Lab assay of single mutants.
Amino acid sequence: KKPMSASALFVQDHRPQFLIENPKTSLEDATLQIEELWKTLSEEEKLKYEEKATKDLERYNSQMKR
């Protein structure tokens, strides 16, 4: 599977709780709203997800070399 971006990892982490809190929201709308939240994060908060994305890219690259 392809590597995930930092923002995609953020959405993946936050979507389940968002949908619990907003059960009538469609998956598409939830994703859009969480992506807007991503844009408001500080660089420090984004760094955690950027590090995860880097590790996921390394995983992807090692799988492609096999």
Rank of each mutant, 00 (worst) to 15 (best):
L47T: 13
E44A: 11
K46V: 03
L27S: 12
L37S: 11
L32H: 07
S42V: 02
V11I: 03
K55T: 12
N61R: 09
R15V: 14
R15D: 01
L27V: 09
Q12G: 02
K52Q: 13
F10H: 08
D56F: 06
R66I: 01
S42P: 12
E44H: 12
T54N: 13
K46P: 00
Y49K: 02
L47C: 09
M4R: 10
E35R: 09
A53D: 02
R66V: 15
N61F: 02
R15Q: 04
S7M: 15
Y49C: 01
K2Y: 11
S42N: 09
A6Q: 02
T25M: 08
Y49L: 00
K1G: 06
Y49S: 01
K46Y: 00
L9R: 13
Y60P: 10
R59F: 11
T25Q: 09
L47I: 10
A6N: 00
L9A: 01
E45P: 00
E43W: 12
K2G: 01
L32I: 08
K46L: 01
S26R: 05
Y49N: 01
A6G: 05
M64I: 08
L37T: 10
M64H: 15
E45Q: 09
K2C: 11
W38C: 15
K55Q: 05
E35H: 08
L57F: 08
L9G: 05
A6R: 01
Q63D: 15
L47D: 08
K65T: 06
S5I: 04
E43S: 13
P3Q: 00
N61K: 14
K55H: 08
S42W: 00
Q33F: 00
E58Q: 13
E43F: 06
S5A: 06
Q12V: 03
K52L: 08
Q33S: 06
T25W: 02
K52P: 04
N61V: 06
K65Y: 07
Q63V: 10
R59P: 10
S62H: 14
E43M: 13
Q33L: 00
E58W: 03
S7E: 14
S42E: 10
T25G: 04
T54M: 08
E35P: 09
S42L: 00
M64T: 09
K55A: 15
K46W: 00
K2R: 04
L47M: 14
E58A: 10
K65R: 11
A53H: 05
L9Y: 08
S7N: 12
K39F: 01
L9N: 03
T40V: 06
L27D: 00
E51R: 12
F10V: 00
L41I: 07
D56M: 06
T40W: 06
K39V: 03
L57G: 09
S26F: 01
A53T: 04
K39A: 12
P3R: 06
L32Q: 09
L57P: 04
P3M: 04
L37Y: 03
L41T: 13
S62A: 13
P16T: 08
K65V: 12
S7A: 14
A6I: 00
R15A: 13
L32R: 14
A6L: 02
M4T: 12
Y60F: 15
E45N: 03
M64F: 11
N61Q: 10
E35Y: 11
L32W: 08
S5K: 08
A6S: 07
L57W: 10
L57M: 14
M64G: 10
K46T: 03
T25C: 08
Y60R: 12
